[in-house]
Design a protein around this nucleic acid. Structure first.
Lengths: 330, 330
DNA sequence: ACGGCCTGTGTAACCGGTTACATGACGCAC
DNA sequence: GTGCGTCATGTAACCGGTTACACAGGCCGT
């Protein structure tokens, strides 16, 4: 036997479908006798309301679409965990779609969301403002996380990369470091752009020598960057990588070259992944789960009170550990 | 203006809704002229089909519900990543619901899936067979991951905990270790149960002395367990923790006590989280993403060919690293 | 010229819920 | 006894798609 529908329940309880609907949804205008009969019938048939049909007639799904790029480990799970925590607290489900490949794939993923979710959270650090604007379904509330979009059409929440980077640079300079190396993330990544721009600005302001090398957020690229610079014989007394993975790679390369961290070269990263604590890596802590949680909060609030149009900055926090502990060695 | 519906498109293209539906879904029996007019109208109106309505009439959602317990970091993201990879390859979306609290919460989460998904993946290592059977919606295909359920009603996939544990114990015993300590996971967790049972069996078979202490899968509990045993003055030359987190905690405690790993005490874990590699921890590697991927595969296959009723074991793999490298110290 | 077939299109029922509105029963005041 | 308000209930339209079926027109063979 297939699933029971509301009409099956109505037949069994010998009432109309309207009464069943009212009874099960706890409306006041239902007699006790009817309510009891309906409940009994529903129980006997193992009736479970069809959420799809329900949301079609209510024009409300109680689900939020989440579109994320192909994130690495910790970051992904943490942000989804935060979102899920807040969403389930408010009775929402999460409809997940990873955004792997090109923009046509993205368009498909986004349109598949239409009609199954009440709102959308999009994190697409590799899409430009225009692409996003074109791809986003028109009628759907969307919240953007960490995109370059500045049109103000959508509520958004961003990581305050600049504040984090500034804190690191000031910390390093405060320790007496004079020649800084920054290992940047991939060019097309929005966070990577912000971080390297902030680094240049802060280092220039502080009046220290600096250099910027490219990386791709993977550990190996941090290792490679440091190696290359050492091979060229260029000196530096501090490394700031755009994320922890690359910072850890950098430490590896430094140790391989017989240099001491932090005596010879101080190292700092960004993100505060669990590994960072274990390695004693100075870094910028991003409370990722909190960010996801907050995104859902703001999104749902803006959904009910149509007005709220926000642009929030999520402030990260400098965590000083062993890799920058001492004074400069020189 | 709200979203355009199929009727809006029909009006604009001056055809019937049936023709619009046929044209947009690529049916053959539509004239080229009509198809062109429909496409044009759809484009002009920015029409995106309403997935909810579509799935209602098709009785097919192209979504899979995923119900997971409140997992920790790496494991969660990896399994979801694997599932998503396979799901999006096949054109499915994932509807996610974390299973936090009690069974009524669980019932709610599961019934919310009815009518929005074509099938369900449930991972609930803390629910018994009977609870599961009662909670699972009747009409819905469900795949179980790592549950104790043996009824055979649902396709399922399990981690071969026993094989993993045996490999570790044999490895430790092969190194000459004579007194093993096992730090178990939480009592109500199915994997934890299997692992500690397998440990007792394997250790007894090998004829070595052993002890089992309770933990909760968190690092701190591993640390605590070792500390307590050391305080009691009990000796052991190898620790096998039910997961890597606790193994790392154990190492911490051993080092604090001035003991050397692996010379004095060898340590092994389970899972192979990224941290394990960095710490040189011997462990059992679980290819989590692969497990998720495979689960989706099997589920979708069993969905199309109604017959496939499987019970697959996912074999893990021993990874020997520094924490068990040498011979016993004695 | 006629019947049969094929093709393209429209009409309307249906998926499984919600809900505006109509209805009928009842109680109460006049 | 009539009129009115209140309350529980049923009928049917609706959400936005899909699709069975009916039908019109064109082309064919005889």
């Amino acid at each position: 036997m297939p699933d029971a529908t509301i009409r099956d329940v109505a037949r069994r309880a010998e009432v109309s479908v309207a009464s069943v609907s009212r009874a099960l949804n706890g409306f006041a205008n239902v007699s006790d006798a009817t309510r009891a009969r309906v409940n009994e019938a529903a129980l006997e048939l193992g009736y479970v309301p069809h959420a799809g049909a329900r949301s079609l007639s209510l024009a409300r799904t109680n689900a939020i679409g989440v579109v994320l790029p192909d994130l690495h480990g910790e970051f992904f799970s943490e942000i989804v965990r935060g979102m899920d925590r807040e969403a389930s607290r408010r009775g929402y489900l999460l409809l997940l779609s990873n955004l792997h490949a090109g923009t046509d794939q993205a368009a498909h993923a986004l349109s598949a969301m239409h009609g199954r979710v009440d709102a959308l959270i999009v994190m697409a650090p590799h899409l430009t403002s225009e692409e996003l604007e074109r791809l986003l379904p028109k009628g759907l509330h969307a919240m953007l996380i960490n995109t370059g979009d500045r049109s103000g059409t959508h509520p958004m929440i961003r990581l305050d990369n600049e504040a984090g980077v500034r804190a690191v640079v000031e910390h390093l300079v405060g320790l007496g470091r004079k020649r800084l190396l920054h290992i940047a993330g991939p060019d097309e990544n929005f966070d990577a752009q912000e971080r390297s721009a902030a680094f240049r600005a802060a280092a220039a302001e502080a009046g220290v020598a600096f250099e910027v090398l490219g990386g791709d957020f993977q550990g190996a690229s941090g290792e490679l960057a440091v190696q290359r610079l050492l091979d060229q014989g260029q000196g530096f007394d501090a490394v700031f990588a755009a994320n922890d993975n690359m910072a850890i790679g950098a430490i590896q390369a430094l140790r391989n070259a017989g240099l001491k961290v932090p005596e010879d070269v101080a190292v700092a990263g960004f993100d505060d992944i669990p590994l960072a604590r274990h390695m004693g890596l100075t870094t910028v802590r991003v409370r990722i789960a909190e960010l996801g949680e907050r995104a859902i909060q703001l999104l749902l609030d803006s959904l009910s009170a149509k007005t709220t149009r926000c642009d929030e900055l999520h402030a990260p926090e400098l965590v000083v550990r062993a890799t920058t502990a001492g004074e400069a060695g020189q």
